[in-house]
């Protein structure tokens, strides 16, 4: 473990938190103001009656938008831009969707089991046309369990950085460098959890989320490849290029 001073940890918390808030796509206050806007039954039905390829394309666009904000977040993480370009790409390719899923708890209304999507709050039934009910319900369960941890913005920021800096991703060239950054981030996360007086094993609960995130992302890849097998031209011509780069 690297030796890091308290002042250094405080600085890391501050920088990561600022980066998170500058790139989080929606402010909590904005979302709070929109929380009453739920899709009406006829709007839900209109999403459900879309052809699968249209709904897939819409979701790919929304995911890609969210990922662009995660890339900006990554660039502002202390030390990320000092890594070699290969490793920056490897970490984003493997971790950007995981961070989107972590950030989703900010857009999630646990009481109504709905997520902010395409301008209003949507329940799992809105995504029926995708044809991946199991994945959607797992994503909603994940968001709900993340919400139940009631993470503050600085805790969420550090957990997101911790996920992005996973040193066990395949194809890293400077694994040790990434490992150092991840360990420092974990110390800062631990530091902030203690400072926020959380003694309910929050760090262990967060560690458990790592494997859940990996499983969700691999299931996304499986569902995408099944979709692509049926609609190869739609993916090739209509999906956002960044989405194809990351998941192709």
């Amino acid at each position: 473990c690297p030796t890091v001073s308290m002042a250094e940890l405080d600085h890391l918390v501050q920088v990561t938190s600022k980066s998170h808030l500058e790139t989080c796509q929606y402010l909590r206050e904005e979302l709070h103001q929109m929380s009453w806007q739920k899709f009406l039954q006829d709007e839900v039905e209109s999403y459900q009656s879309k052809p699968p390829e249209v709904m897939w394309q819409l979701c790919a666009v929304k995911i890609t938008e969210a990922i662009q904000y995660v890339v900006e977040f990554a660039k502002r993480i202390d030390g990320f831009m000092d890594l070699c370009q290969n490793d920056q790409i490897v970490l984003l390719k493997a971790g950007s969707l995981e961070v989107v899923l972590v950030r989703m708890c900010r857009l999630f209304d646990s009481q109504n089991n709905s997520v902010y999507f395409d301008g209003k709050f949507a329940g799992p039934d809105v995504f029926k046309a995708l044809g991946c009910d199991d994945l959607i319900s797992s994503v909603f369960d994940f968001a709900k369990s993340m919400c139940s941890l009631h993470l503050s913005e600085d805790e969420l920021a550090l957990f997101s950085a911790f996920i992005l800096l996973s040193a066990d991703r395949s194809w890293l060239q400077e694994k040790l460098q990434v490992e150092k950054l991840q360990q420092k981030t974990e110390l800062a996360l631990q530091h902030v959890l203690q400072k926020n007086q959380r003694e309910d094993g929050a760090l262990n609960k967060l560690r458990c989320k790592v494997s859940a995130l990996r499983s969700l992302c691999s299931r996304h890849a499986e569902n995408l490849s099944a979709f692509r097998a049926v609609y190869p031209d739609i993916v090739r011509t209509h999906f956002p290029p960044l989405y194809k780069e990351l998941f192709g």
Binding site: Q68, V71, E72, K75, R76, M81, Q85, Q88, I89, L92, K93, P241, L242, E245, L246
Partner: peptide, 16 residues
């Protein structure tokens, strides 16, 4: 590099 053209581009753009 060609395979991740857009990601490279996004990484190289200066942070606004």
């Amino acid at each position: 590099k060609e395979k991740h053209k857009i990601l490279h581009q996004l990484l190289q753009n200066s942070t606004s």
